[in-house]
């Protein structure tokens, strides 16, 4: 970004004049649209606009990162308790740091959980029954979404369990080159 900064005003600004022009042009458009956006509930709209970024960056992302770390810790503890050589399957692939197989097992929970949660994130008003006039407006039963989401979630975890079972039961020699995930 700063590669082309030159001496004088340019170096004080920290980037090329083209950078400045483009940013200012975009801010002018923001001002033009922003004045129009903020007709009405100014505080509410500002809160939604800036709040959505803060909510994501400072709440949602730390939350799912923490959840993912917890999941990994649990997976590691279980791995350590059973020992990498448990079950008579002595294999280099199960050594953490040597091969991804041991570490990659966490993905059998991570993938279905991610898909299920992203479905919930997008369709939560219907899934959690927040849209009280849905039936009055559309003539359709609002009660189906919660059960469907649970069934989809169940199906995702069952599918993942089947994949894990297939991988675990697969002949050992083929695992040497098994590219986990």
């Amino acid at each position: 970004m700063n590669a082309r900064s030159s001496r004088g005003a340019g170096s004080r600004y920290g980037a090329s004049p083209l950078h400045l022009l483009l940013v200012l042009a975009s801010f002018a458009l923001t001002g033009y649209a922003g004045i129009r956006l903020l007709q009405g509930d100014v505080l509410g709209i500002v809160l939604w606009f800036a709040g959505s970024a803060l909510l994501h960056d400072l709440l949602l992302l730390p939350l799912y990162t923490a959840a993912d770390r917890t999941l990994q810790t649990l997976a590691r503890r279980r791995h350590a308790r059973r020992g990498p050589h448990a079950g008579g399957e002595v294999h280099a692939a199960d050594e953490p740091g040597q091969d991804g197989h041991g570490r990659g097992r966490v993905n059998y929970v991570r993938v279905p959980a991610f898909i299920s949660l992203v479905l919930l994130l997008v369709w939560y008003p219907l899934v959690l029954g927040r849209v009280h006039h849905y039936t009055a407006y559309t003539g359709l039963d609002a009660g189906v979404f919660w059960g469907r989401w649970l069934l989809v979630t169940a199906a995702l975890f069952v599918l993942s369990a089947l994949c894990l079972a297939v991988r675990t039961l697969r002949p050992r020699r083929r695992r040497a080159d098994a590219g986990t995930a």
């Binding site: 649209a33 922003g34 956006l37 939604w48 606009f49 008003p125 006039h133």
Partner: peptide
Amino acid sequence: QLHYIFPGSFYPLHFYGAWIFIGA
């Protein structure tokens, strides 16, 4: 999803918000 909890009418919010986004 007919969940009108945003602060105002959908049309101006989504339209003017889009232009702010487009600029950035």
